[in-house]
Structures are given as C-alpha cells and as structure tokens.
C-alpha cells in the first residue's frame, strides 16, 4: 500500500537525519549566550552542521549527560567547578598536546587553573560574576549587601527571583554567613540550612532562564543574576543596578570541554580552535557582555564593555570567590539542604 512506502521513506529520512556523519557538530551550551552569527561563521568556514542544545544550570547539564545523552554531544560548556566534577566522573576526553593549534592564545592567568591543571580537557570561554540586581524604581536604599537576598527589607519581600543553580546559591549563602564553602562543621551546615529556609519565605521564584525577563517585565524587583545577563536586562530598559555586596560574590569561568565518546571529535577540536581566535571569542563577549580569557581581543571588543558597571567591581566590595567542589559527604548534605529548599 502507499502508506507502507510512505512510512518507509519517512523512516529512512529520520534515520538519515540522526546518523552521525562527516560535517556535524553537537554542542551542549548555556541558553541564550552564543550569537547565532558566530555559529553561522564556523559552520561556513569548516562546512559543518552545528546543532546546539541548551541547559540552564551546571547541575542539570550533568544530570542530562548522566541520564543518557553522553555520546551524543561533542562539546559542552560547564562552569569551573563542574569541569572538575566532570573530570572526576570520567566524562571528559583528553586533549593531547598540540591538538589545539591556538592554545597559545590563552591568557597566562587562565592557563593552569585549579579545576583543570594544564588545560587537558578544556579551554576558557567566558568569565564573569554572579550577584544580584535590584530595580531602583522599587528600592533606593543600599543594595551592596547580601541581606537584600537573604534578609530583605519590607518593600522587596516576595519580589525576589533566585537562580535555580545549587552551586551558586549555596556559595552566596555561605558568603552571607561568613562561613567557608564546603565546611564539614555540623553547626555551620545547620545554620546554612536555617538561613535558606527562612530566606525562602521572601523569594518569589526560582529560575535561571527567566532571570533577565523577570527584571525586564517587572515580575521581580530583585533578581539573582549573572553580570552580563544583567547588563543585557539594563539594555532592554530595566532600571536595575548590579550589586557588589560587602560580603562578597561569586565569580565563575565557563569552559568549552571535549566530551568523552564525542561522535565528531575532529570537528569538536576545530570548534575549540575557532573559539580560541581573538576575533571569534570577542564576538561572544560582545554578545554576552562578559569577559573572555584570550589574548588580543581588546581591539575587537565594544568600548562600553570596559567601563560598564557590571564588569567593574566597586572599590570596597567583598571578594569574588569561585564555587568550591565539596567532598562526597558534605556534597550529600548540600544536596539535602537544596532539596529541602526547593520543596
């Protein structure tokens, strides 16, 4: 019957689409952060069809990879601490010396990082900070304290959006209490849990991909957010100010990693080389409003980036800290705290 032929043809088309072939690259990337034009450029230069899937937190990226998508993606873009975790779980492929032609372009300070010594699995991508922004129409007082998030003034209660990202939220909470990250001290862990439980009462929502939209639309007056994302919100008309709290804030570096069992390893390496070229990575920086770790990008960057407040911590701000990776016992307690928070 005709329908049989049709089914056959359609099945073939589907299979052909999903079969791994030359000229493909599968990227697992943070949402809304790589400009489409750059992907086009890579696609044309190397004659590769690029598919990009997105995630909204390091933890959900890990969950998805462990749930069965390993072997389908070539590269991913995890944050600093997640690179360390992934390496520990054996999810990353090693880049041999010399495989990446543009390794020399990496700025010296980002070459030998604690989460990937010698850059065996990753290259730097973008780095920035995580803090929160306040809508100045809603509140005109001092915003440079983590109290805004965890112990807010009356006008801001119930109008706070928090990133759905365990690592960063726990780090901010630790900074607020002044305790070390991944502390194994029971009392400190209990106080962390108590703080989050009480702070939750004043929070309106958890969401990372909605972080910009809630500030622009006014659904939230305070939003925990990444600096570049906040700059974008400000550009879209939100009257917000990015805060550099006295207690400190989170800094992070996103990295492009080569995944184990990458179906298109050669194209993956080409992509990483491509992103190590100053002109290309500058395109990402200009779009995402963060900072990159590559030499020679200054001439390609928007002048505004150097002076905008989201890229320049105020004098007197607390220290920027990277999210720490905890040992298994402490991590399990952290997981418990987070689950209690989110339920």
């Amino acid at each position: 019957m005709i329908s049989k032929a049709f089914i056959g043809a359609a099945a073939l088309a589907l299979v052909a689409n999903t079969a791994a072939a030359e000229g493909k690259l599968s990227v697992y990337h943070w949402f809304e952060y790589i400009p489409a034009e750059l992907v086009e450029k890579f696609s044309k230069e190397y004659d590769v069809k690029v598919t990009i899937d997105t995630f909204d937190s390091n933890e959900s990226m890990l969950a998805s990879l462990k749930a069965g998508t390993m072997g389908s993606y070539d590269v991913a873009v995890p944050g600093d601490y997640m690179v360390e975790i992934m390496a520990g779980e054996g999810l990353l492929d090693t880049i041999a010396k010399g495989e990446l032609a543009n390794m020399a372009n990496i700025e010296d300070q980002w070459l030998n990082v604690s989460f990937d010594p010698g850059r065996k699995h990753s290259i730097p991508y973008q780095w920035g900070s995580t803090s929160f922004s306040v809508n100045r129409d809603a509140y005109s007082g001092n915003i440079n304290t983590t109290d805004i998030l965890f112990n807010p003034p009356e006008q801001l209660k119930g109008k706070i959006n928090v990133l759905d990202s365990q690592g960063e939220v726990m780090a901010m909470a630790a900074l607020h209490l002044g305790i070390p990250q991944c502390s194994a001290d029971r009392e400190q862990l209990k106080s962390l849990d108590a703080l989050l439980q009480s702070a939750k009462e004043n929070w309106a929502s958890f969401g990372s991909d909605i972080a910009k939209d809630v500030l622009v639309s006014g659904d939230a007056a305070v939003g925990m957010i990444w600096n570049g994302f906040s700059a974008k919100a400000r550009a879209e008309g939100a009257n917000i100010e990015y805060s550099y709290p006295d207690q400190g804030y989170v800094v992070w570096m996103d990295n492009v990693v080569l995944l184990r069992d990458a179906p298109n390893r050669a194209n993956a390496l080409n992509f990483m080389d491509f992103l190590l070229e100053p002109e290309n990575i500058a395109a990402v920086t200009n779009y995402a409003r963060y900072a990159d770790g590559i030499k020679g990008t200054t001439e390609f960057l928007d002048a505004e980036l150097a002076t905008m407040p989201e890229n320049n911590p105020r004098a007197g701000a607390g220290a920027g800290v990277f999210v720490a990776v905890c040992d298994q016992t402490t991590q399990e307690v952290y997981d418990q705290i987070w689950t209690r928070l989110r339920s």
Binding site: S26, F31, D56, Y73, D209, I210, D213
Partner: peptide, 20 residues
C-alpha cells in the same frame, strides 16, 4: 529527546522561559 532534537512544544518552552 536526544541531543540536538527539538519538537515544537519543547522549542517553544525553551524560548518562552527566557521571555514571552
């Protein structure tokens, strides 16, 4: 869904979460 595969509802959901 596997890597790189979106259907209309999943594509719309991803887009909508970032702003309608």
């Amino acid at each position: 869904k596997g890597a790189g595969i979106e259907t209309l509802p999943t594509a719309i959901f991803g887009s909508v979460k970032q702003g309608i």
